[in-house]
Amino acid sequence: MPSIAIVALGVVEEDALATLELSVWETFGFEIQRLPPQENPEFAFDEERRQYSSEKILRSLLKEVRSDTVKLLGVTPVDMFIPMLSFVFGQAQLHGKVAAISLARLRQEFYGLEPNRGVFLHRTAKEAIHELGHTWGLTHCRDRSCPMALATNLQQLDRKTDELCTSCSIMLRETVRSLHRSGYRS
């Protein structure tokens, strides 16, 4: 059964995974498959930056893609970066198979604020939809409330909803449909 696979890289709470499962399924319409959880991605640790390379994480995820994996989403508690930037909330292969999100900076605690479970879960869902959206070829949307809008800080992230705007969902539907036509499912 073609499905979107979700894998935890490190300790990720059950409610976060359940939220992801639900919103990813809801948005993209594929069966969700949870892969067995893995360790923290130590292979991606950068001594100098004390952070984890999202590029390396994506590369290792690619190795886990199987023939019926439509997309693979890695979820990790560790803080991710790319060399040019001080951090990233997530990263994806545009038009590719894999995406990864980091939960580190989605928690209120990271900024010295009171924890807020609801807010955290909502951010998690939006970030996952955003990165997976990129794997379907969607680029950043101008509609600030669309999960595909670019968010470089929490204010921007919190302004977004977890529902794709009309034009993004149409574009998504078109790509998903052509994928189905080309042999996946039906």
């Binding site: 390379s53 590029e55 790319i82 060399p83 990263q91 545009l94 680029t139 950043h140």
Partner: peptide, 17 residues
């Protein structure tokens, strides 16, 4: 000249369209 720098930067900008 650094591959990972170049490619990750390019990828990030591509996501912006």
């Amino acid at each position: 000249d650094e591959e990972i720098m170049r490619e990750s930067m390019a990828a990030w900008l591509r996501e912006d369209g």
